[in-house]
């Protein structure tokens, strides 16, 4: 039985420049701050950053890995509070994802709070999924 306080199996994902290019194409988000250092620096960023929506998608994997059925996700939201800076090398950037059941509700749903960290700091704020629990 799922209970408040349960922790989801954590997930670490390494994000490299090639992943950003692939995500840009798949998501149709071609903003050059996600692949061009000059443009990123010209708008005050330390360098190319990952799409916030890519980080949100990776955090979504944490949840759907846990539910097993992706269609159990009823609501999913997040704020983008810090960038994930992705250097142009083999190491890329490591995103660390953890999650915890905040609340199990009478209606058979649960609220999961997600933490996404890069460089020791949270990059998503108020990242919450509402999921339907197995009957």
């Amino acid at each position: 039985m799922t209970a408040a306080g349960d922790e989801l199996p954590p997930l670490d994902v390494r994000v490299r420049r090639a992943d950003l290019v692939r995500y840009a194409g798949a998501s149709l988000d071609f903003n050059p701050i996600h692949w061009n250092d000059e443009v990123a620096e010209s708008v005050g960023l330390p360098g190319v950053i990952a799409h916030g929506m890519l980080t949100m998608a990776l955090a979504g994997r944490l949840v759907t890995n846990w539910t097993g059925d992706p269609s159990a996700v009823l609501e999913y939201s997040a704020r983008f509070i810090r960038p994930v800076v992705v250097p142009n090398d083999e190491d890329g950037a490591q995103v660390e994802l953890t999650g915890k059941v905040k609340e199990v509700r009478e209606d058979g749903t649960a609220r999961v709070d997600i933490t996404a960290k890069f460089d020791g700091k949270a990059v998503l704020g108020k990242a919450v999924a509402i999921v339907r629990l197995p009957a």
Binding site: G52, V73, L74, E75, Y76, S77, A78, R79, F80
Partner: peptide, 16 residues
């Protein structure tokens, strides 16, 4: 567009 930042995103699903 050059000054635009994505602040937050949310989805509610009636179905996938």
């Amino acid at each position: 567009y050059g000054r635009l930042v994505h602040g937050d995103m949310g989805f509610q699903y009636a179905r996938p």
